[in-house]
């Protein structure tokens, strides 16, 4: 006669081993899910572009003081502060903005010099096909039209980029 008690005990060991594996799998999945920071950079870049746009044009018209704004005083004139918290390796290099102004009726004439502010070193990652490089920064470009003071059609192109990888991507 075979004693089934020994067999039952062995099966229980296997059963709890399987439970332990399942638990470990769930713990890993939860850690990966909740350990991943939420990425708000896309929203941040969109808000940045909207803020820059209102700095140069409102109501479809280019503002009078646009001629006074250049790359050197852009942050001050548009009430922006690109300084970030200490965790980032490059404190002044987490943002990049490029603004260009094109005259639609005569593209050869420059309406205003190109304004370029921030760290352009990580911008190339936005155009890379490598998934890992794409997470380095979020880049968005938007264009809109406005009329100058002398009723010339101007196309304003705003390219903005936010890095902040340490707090938005893992």
């Amino acid at each position: 006669m075979k004693n089934k008690k020994g067999t039952d005990m062995i099966l229980s060991v296997y059963w709890f081993a399987i439970l332990a594996l399942v638990a470990a799998g769930i713990f890993v999945m939860v850690y990966l899910f909740y350990g991943h920071p939420s990425d708000v950079r896309e929203m941040e870049v969109s808000i940045l572009i909207d803020k820059i746009a209102t700095c140069f044009a409102q109501g479809g018209r280019v503002l009078d003081n646009v001629g006074e704004i250049n790359s050197g005083n852009f942050l001050e004139k548009c009430n922006l502060d690109f300084d970030v918290e200490e965790v980032f390796k490059i404190r002044e290099g987490q943002y990049y903005v490029n603004i260009s102004f094109d005259k639609l009726d005569n593209p050869e004439n420059i309406f205003h010099e190109v304004i370029e502010v921030g760290n352009a070193n990580f911008v190339s990652s936005c155009f890379s096909d490598d998934v890992e490089y794409k997470r380095q920064a979020i880049c968005i470009q938007e264009k809109f039209y406005a009329l100058s003071q002398d009723n010339k059609k101007i196309m304003i192109t705003i390219f903005a980029s936010v890095r902040k990888t340490e707090k938005n991507a893992k």
Partner: peptide, 23 residues
Amino acid sequence: YGNIVKVKLSEKGGYEYSFFNDV
């Protein structure tokens, strides 16, 4: 403080995030 928001919900915790609006 400055342009950095810090939220703290535990004694030794705290999370900072900066904003770019100069206000």
